[in-house]
């Protein structure tokens, strides 16, 4: 992770975890930085505009 981000609630450094990403009837798993304690996933600007948008567009064209 290029940015040093913490979960404010738990004070924990984020770790990479698998999360479930859902888009309409599609569902897949992806590695995303999350809080190790509460599990909250962090979607960065770069990730949202890059990988996530790419996948959304691919599914929208199906």
């Amino acid at each position: 992770m290029d940015k040093h981000v913490k979960c404010a609630k738990c004070g924990e450094e984020l770790v990479i975890k698998k999360v479930v990403i859902k888009y309409f009837e599609h569902e897949f798993r992806k590695d995303v930085p999350c809080c190790p304690k509460c599990g909250q996933p962090y979607i960065s600007y770069e990730f949202a505009k890059g990988k996530v948008r790419e996948a959304e567009m691919e599914l929208e064209d199906k």
């Binding site: 999360v19 479930v20 859902k22 999350c34 599990g39 909250q40 996530v52 948008r53």
Partner: peptide, 15 residues
């Protein structure tokens, strides 16, 4: 920024 996809946490650690 925003995204349309839903992101759900799992209990699984990264493999």
């Amino acid at each position: 920024y925003f995204h349309r996809m839903e992101v759900e946490k799992t209990d699984e650690a990264a493999g």
